[in-house]
Structure formats: C-alpha cells, structure tokens
C-alpha cells in the first residue's frame, strides 16, 4: 500500500512511543493493511523469542558488562563516590580494613576470606552456531541437530586468561573437546592473550560418534588444572542437568564456566 507509514513509525508504534493521535491513526491503518500487520506480527514473534530467553540473556549481559576491564568502565557499584564526604569515607574504610586485619590476625574472625572471591574474576560466554546447507543458526532446544551439521564454538572472555573446552554426554560423562588451536605444551588449557571473542573450534561435525548434550567452557585468569575441572564436572553432574557456573579449585582459585545445551540429534 502506498499510504503505509514508514517502517520506523511501526517500530515506534510497537514500542509504545507514539503520541495518542498518531498511535490511533497507525492502529487504524494496521487493521486494514496486511503488509503492516505482518510487520507488527514479526516484531511480536521476535519479542516472544526474546522473552523466552530473557533470564539467561540478561544474566549473561550483566556478567559481561559488569566485569569487563577492557572497556575502562567499572561496574557502577565500584565507582568512587563524589562529594564532600569522600575523604571521610576513605578514612572510615581504611580504619575498617585495619580493624578487620587486626581481628583476623588475632584469630577472632576465623579464617581469612578467600581472595579469589573478593578479587575480580572476569567473565566468560560461550557461543555455538550450527551450519546446515550453507545456512547458519544458533543452537536451540527446539531444533534438532542432524548428522552432517557443522558446529563452530566461540568463546568471549572479559580479560586475558586460560580456557578449556569440554563436552558432556546425556549420562553426564565429561570429556575434553579438542580445539583448532594448539594447546600449550603439557597442558590442556589454552591461553588467551586478549579479551574478546575467540574462535576455538570451527569444524565440529555431527556424526555417529557425536554424543555431546552440553558443550562447556572453563575460564580462569590464572592457569588451572583442566583434568581437575573435568573430574569435578563428572562427579557433580546429574543426568540431564546444566553444569554449574563456577568451580572452586583445591588451591582456592575459581574457574568460571559457561555451557550451551546441544539439542537432541538424529543419528
């Protein structure tokens, strides 16, 4: 229809941004125009998709945003307060640190807190895409993976650090997933020199041998024992459940995890 509103007006209508007279006039048009009602329908379908993955997406965004030192933006709650009371707050904080240190030193507060918990731990996010007949799609529990599909595994880290990749089958058995990148000598972890997105595996083909129910990435800013992570995951995993988000190692360091469920596949 030639009198259709601009698409951007439909965007503003869908987002509830238009003032009342414009809103009503566009509403009347949509009622009569198949094309524009189709556009609104499409926005609505996308919105539903967003709502279905709302919780996981929002928590991933917060994790990446709040913990990313590369941006130069500190999480808001860590920003220094402004105003006349700043020096006073500094003195009070220093005094509190001294008192706590004394209490810890004299054993009155029990064990010192775990440094790994207090310190910045970074963040990791896993992205897995599937390719079929030249088309790419994200892994989705509702979509069956077929034999011959090719998977790529990418990892985004918020700071330089070390990464290991695992696959977990439907019985909860965890095995290392080899990557395209050569691991460092005598270790199963990969060192990332930079923050950002890294391609780890570009040609993971779904074949008869393929049994992954979850692909898991482990990340730490310090080197860690990948086999210990593997056995921890194997021992704590119950059938069908998603892996934990963090593992505490024996030396009290922390390894962060992210995982993606691989939908059931046809053999």
């Amino acid at each position: 229809m030639s009198d259709c509103p601009n698409r951007f007006a439909l965007v503003q209508y869908h987002a509830g941004e238009l003032p009342e007279p414009n809103r009503r006039s566009i509403e009347r048009h949509i009622d009569q125009c198949e094309r524009c009602s189709g556009v609104i329908e499409r926005f609505e379908q996308n919105k539903q998709q967003g709502l279905e993955q709302r919780q996981s997406t929002l928590s991933r965004i917060r994790r990446l945003a709040d913990a990313d030192p590369q941006t130069g933006i500190l999480p808001t709650y860590r920003q220094r307060p402004k105003g006349w009371w700043r020096p006073a707050l500094g003195v009070a904080a220093s005094a509190a640190v001294v008192i706590i240190a004394v209490l810890i030193g004299t054993g009155q507060l029990g064990d010192p807190p775990d440094k790994a918990v207090i310190a910045y731990r970074g963040a990791v996010a896993l992205h897995v895409s599937a390719y079929r007949n030249g088309h790419r799609f994200k892994l989705d529990p509702d979509r069956t993976v077929r034999r011959g599909d090719r998977l790529t595994v990418e990892v985004t880290v918020s700071s330089p650090g070390y990464v290991a990749l695992f696959s977990m089958d439907r019985q909860g058995k965890v095995t290392p997933l080899d990557t395209d990148i050569q691991f460092e000598t005598n270790t199963e972890i990969q060192k990332f020199e930079t923050a950002g997105r890294h391609l780890l595996k570009s040609n993971l083909v779904v074949d008869q041998e393929f049994s992954a129910a979850h692909i898991i990435v482990a990340f730490s800013q310090d080197p860690f024992d990948a086999s210990a992570v593997q056995s921890d995951l194997s021992s704590t995993q119950t059938e069908g459940s998603a892996p934990a988000e963090m593992i505490r190692m024996k030396n009290n360091s922390t390894v962060l995890l992210d995982s993606i469920a691989v939908p059931a596949h046809e053999r």
Binding site: V11, H14, A15, G16, R42, F43, E44, Q45, N46, K47, Q48, Q49, G50, L51, R54, T57, L58
Partner: peptide
C-alpha cells in the same frame, strides 16, 4: 530500566 528496554525493544532490534 534496562530490563524494560529489553522487553519493549528486543523484537524490533532483532528485526533491524
């Protein structure tokens, strides 16, 4: 809030 922006604009931004 950020959450409200997510709910309201996810659909149109994905389309864009």
């Amino acid at each position: 809030s950020f959450e409200e922006i997510y709910d309201r604009y996810y659909g149109v931004l994905l389309d864009h």
